[in-house]
């Protein structure tokens, strides 16, 4: 199939590994899936300290389960990416460790306090849900299929985040103040999750034409703001004066671009922000420390009767 034929056939869940797809399509789909899978891993890495810090047994269980879910999502998405035949999972995980792999902007900012956790688990996951729901109609069937399970679990994560936010905002004044401060710090990053408003994304046109993307960033941002501004207010959060967001009254919003720090955003997206370096190298260190285990596994083949040495020396 050439590119024109691919565009002509493009539709929800249209293409599978059985199709002979042009390299341009396979590269574009790999780029999206790899970014998504990397984001699951780095999101899990960011949240993992709060398994320990969670202030009750049941919250601890929920954090542990959420972090585990993200690893499971990463596993599914890398598999869907591998099936495009461009990169292996090992190559993608190596790139993530050495700083070449890209991932969501919000996961480049370290979290210190428990009150920050709903910024990720409610707002960022809520934003991600908007995008992910549209990916159930991706033209790459393995991607769309993975999204069925992932969206279900992400729905649980957003409830977990909402429950923490509600509890904090119904707590002491001190808790409420701490959450408001965290919200003001995180809100601009959350808005940037969807990229610049006037984004002429280099990758968007092609991805849309071949059915890998079904919504623009502007549409997704509007859908997110329509739901989440009222929710933030409902829980007692005050919207910061800046960045200014104009409500057009028709379900759309204008975000004043100059109120957001785009230099920082592009530094983040190049993995060059201080937080990027901290998160990426933290994970790399952990992965290098268990390289000996992976080496051992590579040297062995597992049979039904148990492990056996691959070569007798």
């Amino acid at each position: 199939m050439n590119v024109d034929e691919t565009k002509a056939r493009a539709g929800p869940r249209e293409f599978s590994p059985k199709d002979d797809l042009p390299e341009e399509y396979r590269k574009a789909a790999t780029r999206m899936l790899e970014f998504h899978a990397n984001s699951e891993i780095m999101g899990a890495f960011l949240e993992r300290p709060f398994i320990r810090k969670a202030p009750s047994i049941e919250r601890k269980m929920a954090f542990s389960a959420k972090v585990q879910d993200e690893i499971g999502h990463g596993q599914m998405l890398y598999r869907a990416a591998e099936s495009l035949g461009i990169k292996t999972r090992e190559e993608m995980l190596d790139d993530l460790a050495n700083g070449d792999g890209k991932f969501l902007n919000c996961f480049h900012y370290p979290m210190e306090s428990y009150v920050e956790t709903p910024m990720i688990a409610f707002f960022v996951d809520g934003a991600a849900m908007r995008r992910q729901a549209t990916l159930k109609k991706s033209s790459w069937e393995p991607y769309a299929h993975a999204m069925d399970k992932i969206c279900f679990e992400e729905g649980m994560h957003v409830k977990h985040g909402e429950s923490i936010l509600r509890e904090l905002m119904n707590g002491s004044r001190k808790e409420q103040r701490m959450v408001q401060e965290a919200f003001e710090e995180w809100w601009p990053r959350i808005l940037q999750f969807f990229g610049p408003t006037d984004d002429q994304s280099t990758h968007h046109d092609f991805a849309a034409e071949v059915g890998l993307k079904t919504c623009t960033n502007d549409e997704l941002r509007n859908a997110f703001l329509n739901t989440y501004i009222p929710k933030a207010k409902k829980y007692g959060l005050e919207m910061p004066d800046e960045p200014r967001i104009r409500d057009n009254g028709d379900g759309t919003y204008e975000v004043v671009e100059d109120d957001l720090d785009w230099d920082e955003f592009f530094t983040v997206s190049q993995n060059e922000y201080d937080g990027s370096i901290e998160q990426i190298s933290g994970r790399r260190q952990a992965q290098e420390a268990v390289q000996w285990v992976r080496d051992m596994m590579d040297d062995q083949t597992t049979t039904n009767s148990g492990p056996q040495s691959q070569a007798a020396d």
Binding site: A44, I71, V290, R294, M297
Partner: peptide
């Protein structure tokens, strides 16, 4: 839980 996001492979994690 120390090993979450630190285990040798996604499967062992």
């Amino acid at each position: 839980t120390f090993w979450q996001v630190r285990a040798p492979t996604l499967e062992s994690d």
